[in-house]
Nucleic acid binder design. Structure first.
Lengths: 258, 258
DNA sequence: ATTAGTATTATAGTATGATTTATCGCCGCT
DNA sequence: AGCGGCGATAAATCATACTATAATACTAAT
């Protein structure tokens, strides 16, 4: 089941190796270059994409850096197994989305969000600076002002979530913005948050609750609010299954050394 | 000025661009190429590392793919801000470790582990196949057999944890093996798990508890066991602070669509 | 004096061909 | 059957030349 299809954007004037990297990347996602297979040699790929060897090799190095492929002398360039891929990479996520995301993938996205964002909120509630709180506030206000445009709303929403990640103080959390971006973009395509007035209000209330909890430095409330938010977002795109595998799990965590 | 001190491991005959990428990468970590600065032009870097333009540019593309740098015509190659870096990348973590990690960084690592691994265990407990359980068992047995060698134990431990991630079925979790590897390598360097007999027994008991819970398909118990395991590991390297910022937070999660 | 448009120029990007190096598969030898 | 050398092949590297882009400086019109 394909839920979202490649909004093949105009691809306005990107560099050659970038185009090649995206081309090969997408082909891998689509399965046209199957996992474990050896993809065509330099010469053939050069012809396929109409670029020089330099540009091609730079594209291949980009893909190799993301764990997608591995080149070995004489044997060729092999498409690596999925668990070598760096799923937190913005490009890889992008290619996934452009090829089309099924319900399973969307479920994985929400699963990760549910694991990270509530606790990110909790730490943000404790560690946030006034400036960081202000950044969240700006994101929230931008969301309020975007009741019409879905694109604008998505962008503002992402800013809000990223501000929270930033305030968590943990660089690992700070680098998962692309994951949340992917989740938002996909789910809003399936089910727009600005489709109806009550829907919009509900979403805003949930975000406001997260903000309030962080403002009041209440980690537990912040975590709960974010957890609710994500859970409902998942329900809206019908990811939630009838039987929930994990009802409710107690998590112990701790602060880093400041 | 030679920036590439070949120190560390024998680095058994790596390719030219790999060496350059590591060289520049480490220099960025060390702050010798400060964040936000423009690093030397192609010509100068070529001379610094003694490689051709081709090799240099491939190295730069590798770094760019990981979000470390960005090249723009006329302006040069800029070292990007930290939150553009992909912290889940194996190389970036590696460079961090080689430069030396402080208590704060180690704290962040454990924080992420504490967010992901318990819930990964919970999902693994539900979704695991017999084969995957067997893989965990093999890892566990390898740990039992490595009471002497720290290196061997670290490797076996990583295999155990990766088997759990694999069984979680979530590709995002499956690609964080490098993070756990980094955490294990660092903490075992600070405080070896095979230093004393009782210490070894304690660690093994905790791992056995995780395995048993997953075997019995008990997500809640699996999550708790893993949470305890990580918490104690953190305490051993004195990461845990006197005042725990987040005592205990209730997490709601859900299963993806199978 | 301000602005708009144009030329300059530094730098990354691309192209091409030659050369080197590593690995596989084959053949012959033991 | 197993081992070791030899050649073919494709990637890795080098060297050089050329192109595209954008920041800067300069000029001219208002």
């Amino acid at each position: 089941m394909v839920l979202m299809h490649g909004t093949h954007r105009p691809s306005r004037a990107r560099s050659a190796h970038d185009l090649v990297a995206h081309g090969i990347g997408q082909n891998i996602m689509e399965g046209r270059f199957p996992i474990g297979s050896i993809l065509p040699g330099d010469a053939e790929l050069m012809e396929l994409f109409g670029v020089s060897r330099t540009a091609l090799r730079e594209a291949l190095k980009t893909l190799a850096a993301k764990g997608l492929i591995e080149s070995k002398t004489k044997v060729g360039t092999k498409v690596m197994d999925r668990n070598n891929w760096n799923m937190f990479d913005a490009d890889i996520l992008d290619w996934h989305l452009q090829v089309g995301v099924d319900a399973r993938f969307l479920g994985w996205l929400f699963e990760i969000r549910q694991m990270l964002e509530p606790l990110a909120c909790a730490t943000a509630a404790v560690r946030r600076t006034p400036e960081q709180l202000d950044a969240m506030h700006r994101g929230l206000r931008a969301m309020y002002e975007c009741e019409t445009s879905r694109q604008g709303f998505t962008k503002a929403d992402l800013i809000f979530h990223q501000a929270i990640l930033e305030a968590s103080g943990n660089p690992f959390l700070q680098s998962i913005g692309s994951v949340i971006g992917a989740a938002l973009a996909t789910s809003f395509t399936i089910s727009s948050p600005v489709s109806s007035d009550e829907r919009f209000k509900e979403v805003m209330q949930q975000h406001q609750a997260v903000f309030d909890a962080i403002e009041q430095r209440d980690p537990s409330a912040a975590s709960d609010a974010m957890s609710d938010l994500i859970l409902q977002a998942a329900e809206r795109v019908r990811i939630k299954h009838a039987e929930s595998a994990l009802a409710s799990v107690q998590i112990h965590t701790f602060s880093g050394v400041d």
